[in-house]
Design a binder for these strands. Structure first.
Lengths: 213, 213
DNA sequence: CGCGAAGGTGAGCAAGCGCTTAGAAGCGCA
DNA sequence: TGCGCTTCTAAGCGCTTGCTCACCTTCGCG
């Protein structure tokens, strides 16, 4: 049940704002954060430019000083969000260790990111279709690189005998689908913290690939 | 500009149309099938009533003879779709056998349904937020009943020692999330058939709960 | 055959949409 | 102080949206 109507200044909002600290100038950042929240809450198509500007405390016209179109906002969000998610994956992959350790690290941090940044992640992962045809391929390429990270680790694990995975392609799909979908259902008012979900999912995925716990 | 022909009459369309055979009169069914396809393709908010009517080969006004609003269409689709998904789950659960067998059957048939009816499932599972406040609770209740089926089997399996599941609630969430998300990525032109995905996922889930294969 | 109900249409309304424009307000700098 | 640049606003344009309305068919039935 929701307590405060608009957008409470709770942890979620702070986390969202902090994550976009690099965007400047400040007005552009405020608009972008407002857009992330609105898109995540209602979806891209159900969000109006007036709503975004209103959340940022500005007039509707102000939006067009910093962004050419509403779709450019979505593209910027998508681009930065995917970059961040991919960076999280790659950092975990580079941590080293056995295939099982790397897989667990990757899943744990990827899931934690999707839980902590579930507002951003929801936009990034579920509003892809709203991107224009000139921006979509770029984002799809980033997604393919995320797939490749997971697939690589699964292949490593199979090769060195750590994993028992009959269908590497299908399992890659399943693992990523599982992780990404966290953004849809995660609720920061719920019982589980991002860390807990990350640990749980790392364990579940290790079991899926037949690694020894 | 507009070709009177709706979308391609491929397998997907036939499966979708057949699934709604019970809806009558025929014009109402055609509109509903058109709405399912449009909502799945573009999302509820990006779909116009003119688009729906056009796909059904009718004028925009005809829609309002059979449905009061665009939202009523979504509600009807959501209601029937959730009923169907729940029926699939319950039938598999009632099949009997060990906890592991019941879980495998449930996952296999639930996933197969989400793959075969991925057009309907996409609407049912991902356009929930577009429902009005008077319809949403009814649909959420159906979803809770789906959760309960999976949770029940996990609890049974833990009780009789077949499963090793430290966090039943979290694992229930993960299993359902995994199955439901099939609707998002499944592509009937892709490499895997609904049966194959169902088998793969049943296996993955058995591993997740630590059941002996 | 005449008739009323049911199912369909073309035209169009009010509201809301993304986006633009004219001009005001604040700022650093001569 | 006055100038030019950036930032922001009030007003509103052209268009699309969900939906309605007056009217036209079609058809079962006395």
């Amino acid at each position: 049940m929701r307590t405060a109507e608009p957008v409470g200044d709770d942890d979620g909002r702070r986390a969202t704002t902090a994550a976009w600290a690099e965007v400047s100038p400040e007005a552009a950042r405020r608009l972008l954060v407002a857009a992330v929240e609105a898109f995540a809450e209602r979806g891209y198509h159900a969000t109006t430019t007036r709503d975004i500007a209103g959340r940022a405390g500005m007039s509707p016209a102000a939006l067009y000083i910093h962004y050419k179109t509403k779709e450019e906002l979505l593209h910027r969000i998508s681009r930065i969000g995917h970059d961040r998610a991919l960076a999280v994956l790659r950092k975990a992959e580079a941590g080293g260790g056995t295939s099982a350790q790397r897989l667990a690290d990757v899943v744990r941090s990827f899931v934690r990111w999707h839980a902590e940044q579930h507002t951003t992640a929801r936009v990034v992962q579920y509003e892809l279709d709203a991107l224009g045809p000139e921006h979509r391929p770029e984002i799809l390429e980033l997604r393919r690189q995320s797939d490749a990270v997971v697939r690589r680790i699964l292949e490593d694990g199979v090769r060195d005998g750590e994993f028992d995975v009959p269908d590497v392609g299908g399992t890659t799909l399943a693992v990523l689908s599982l992780c990404v979908d966290v953004a849809r259902w995660f609720d920061e008012a719920g019982r589980r913290s991002p860390d807990e979900v990350g640990d749980l999912y790392a364990d579940l995925v290790l079991r899926m690939v037949g690694a020894r716990a």
